[in-house]
């Protein structure tokens, strides 16, 4: 009697198990189906028309012909905007790091002094990250006028968002053992922070900051399009004046800058490890 009851129960359990298992087998198919539907509507919405590419090919070839050869005579004149672009990235990244670091300490669960600090710093970081740097640049151009400074400000603010979150994650993932050990030696809060937390996380933070510098170089090239200085601004001007040979020169300089920043940042990160 008892045994039969137990048998019944376990059979019912098995049934329930099967029922729970059944949808998970169908799940991959459902997901693929949902993706296909999403892709179909995306194709419609972006008005993808391959024939436009064909008819546009003539115009494209025309631009390329007019852009060749790059106007190397103007190379000297691109040096200043190029420097501006590099400096916007350098300044913006540095300011970003300086603000992101204290924010990240407040925004990491294991180092934050109190809940309200945690919430506030998380909020600031999320806001700085959610607004794209191009939009920040537009806002700052309106506020402080044309030129490289609004670009540098935009990069700074956006970097605070990107770096703040990554920094906080690094701090949260760190080994808390040394912190516990130093607490027991009677060390103070600041001492624990500077002697246990900082040495453990510094290399990772450096790596992240260097990667950000590389990303910011690319951003600062684009920021000129909204009037925030640098090569982007020159590029926009040349485009509007149909000076395609200048455009091609500027694109070449851009290419060199981006590759150089990427290589330098990668080499420095390797050196830190």
């Amino acid at each position: 009697m008892n045994e039969r009851l137990l048998g019944d129960l376990s059979a019912r359990k098995r049934d329930q198990g099967d029922m729970r298992y059944a949808p998970s087998r169908a799940l991959p198919f459902l997901l693929v189906f949902a993706f296909l539907i999403a892709l179909a509507q995306a194709t419609l919405v972006v008005q993808a028309r391959p024939q436009d590419l064909v008819t546009g090919a003539y115009g494209m070839a025309d631009i390329l012909r007019r852009a060749w050869p790059p106007d190397f005579g103007r190379l000297g004149k691109t040096l200043w905007p190029a420097l501006e672009t590099v400096d916007i990235a350098l300044f913006g990244t540095t300011v970003g790091v300086l603000i992101a670091l204290p924010l990240a300490i407040l925004a990491a669960r294991n180092t934050t002094p109190a809940g309200p600090f945690y919430a506030a710093s998380r909020g600031i970081i999320a806001l700085a990250r959610a607004v794209p740097d191009l939009v920040w640049a537009l806002l700052f151009v309106t506020a402080v006028g044309l030129g490289p400074f609004p670009g540098a400000l935009a990069i700074s603010v956006h970097s605070v968002g990107m770096l703040g979150r990554l920094f906080a994650e690094v701090i949260e993932d760190m080994d808390m053992g040394p912190v516990e050990a130093l607490t027991m030696t009677g060390a103070g809060r600041m001492q624990i922070f500077s002697h246990a937390v900082v040495p453990s996380v510094l290399p990772s933070l450096f790596g992240i900051a260097l990667y950000r510098l590389d990303e910011n170089m690319r951003s600062s090239l684009v920021l000129g399009f909204v009037g925030a200085g640098g090569i982007g601004f020159e590029l926009l001007t040349a485009m509007n004046l149909f000076q395609y040979r200048t455009v091609s020169l500027l694109l070449l300089v851009t290419f060199v800058l981006v590759i150089a920043a990427e290589r330098l940042s990668a080499a420095l990160r390797r050196w830190i490890d």
Binding site: L182, T185, G186, G188, M190, Q191, S194, H195, A196
Partner: peptide, 15 residues
């Protein structure tokens, strides 16, 4: 770092 508790100065707080 074991001696930090006995040396609570600004310099040691800064690393």
């Amino acid at each position: 770092t074991g001696t930090l508790g006995q040396h609570r100065t600004l310099a040691t707080a800064l690393g």
